[in-house]
Amino acid sequence: MSIKKDLLKKTKEYADQAKEYAKDHAKDYTDYAKSYAKDYAGDAKGYAKEYAKHAKKAAEKEVQANNNAASVAIALIGGLVLGAALGVLFAPEAGTETRNNLGSSLQDLGTTVADKAQQGKEAITNLADKAVDAVKSKIGGEGAEGEDPDIDHPSFS
């Protein structure tokens, strides 16, 4: 019977040691898992910020390209109107009729330029809104955690 008691005693010691080992290492593994999850959450947030910066730069380039195109279009329209005005001034018509034609042409030009400017403004605003929506959808929607507070959302009002 003493062998049986010794065996039971050793088994109990081994079981106690196993419990103690599990208790000590469970905390270590839990801490490791928490640290690992925190590191990856930080990496994901960093990637989201980096993506937002790239999207902002792309949107700014697109807005600049649209501004350049609008400038060229306005210059072209202005040149055409100036050419037409000079043609009217040197036409063999009476001075009163020429001045009336010129005034009418300038009023039409003002209306056309104002309309084109409004259309350009709306196009740029729509493009900026699309860029912001694309970035928000990539980082998890409106007000998502990790949204870059440094992004200036353009306002063209």
Rank of each mutant, 00 (worst) to 15 (best):
M1Q: 11
I3S: 07
K4Q: 15
D6A: 14
D6P: 01
L7T: 13
L7W: 09
K9W: 02
K9G: 01
T11P: 02
E13R: 02
A15V: 13
D16M: 07
Q17L: 11
Q17M: 13
Q17G: 15
Q17C: 10
K19I: 15
E20M: 09
K23E: 15
K23Q: 14
D24W: 02
A26I: 08
A26N: 09
Y29C: 08
Y29F: 15
T30A: 15
D31C: 03
D31N: 14
Y32L: 15
K34C: 01
K34V: 07
S35L: 06
S35W: 10
A37Y: 03
A37D: 12
D39P: 00
Y40D: 12
A41Q: 13
G42Y: 02
G42R: 09
D43R: 10
G46D: 09
Y47P: 00
A52D: 06
K53A: 05
K53C: 00
K56A: 14
K56C: 00
K56D: 14
A59F: 04
E60Q: 14
E60A: 13
K61W: 08
E62I: 00
E62P: 01
E62G: 00
V63E: 01
N68T: 15
A70F: 12
S71N: 13
V72T: 14
A73G: 07
A73M: 08
I74V: 09
I77N: 05
G79N: 08
G79Y: 03
A84D: 07
A85E: 03
A85P: 00
L86D: 06
G87D: 06
V88L: 11
V88C: 02
A91G: 13
A91I: 03
E93R: 01
G95C: 00
E97G: 03
E97F: 07
T98R: 15
N101E: 08
L102N: 05
L102H: 04
L102Q: 03
G103Q: 08
S105Y: 02
S105H: 02
S105K: 05
Q107F: 10
L109Y: 13
L109N: 08
T112K: 14
T112W: 05
D115S: 05
K116R: 10
K116H: 05
A117F: 07
A117G: 13
Q118W: 09
G120Q: 12
K121S: 13
E122M: 04
I124W: 01
N126M: 11
A128C: 06
D133V: 07
A134N: 07
S137M: 05
K138I: 04
I139F: 01
G140W: 06
G140Y: 04
G140A: 03
G140T: 01
G141P: 06
G141R: 12
G141E: 11
E142H: 11
E142G: 03
E145H: 06
E145P: 02
G146P: 02
E147L: 14
P149Y: 03
P149S: 10
I151N: 02
D152C: 00
P154R: 06
S155Y: 03
F156P: 00
S157T: 10
S157H: 13
S157R: 08
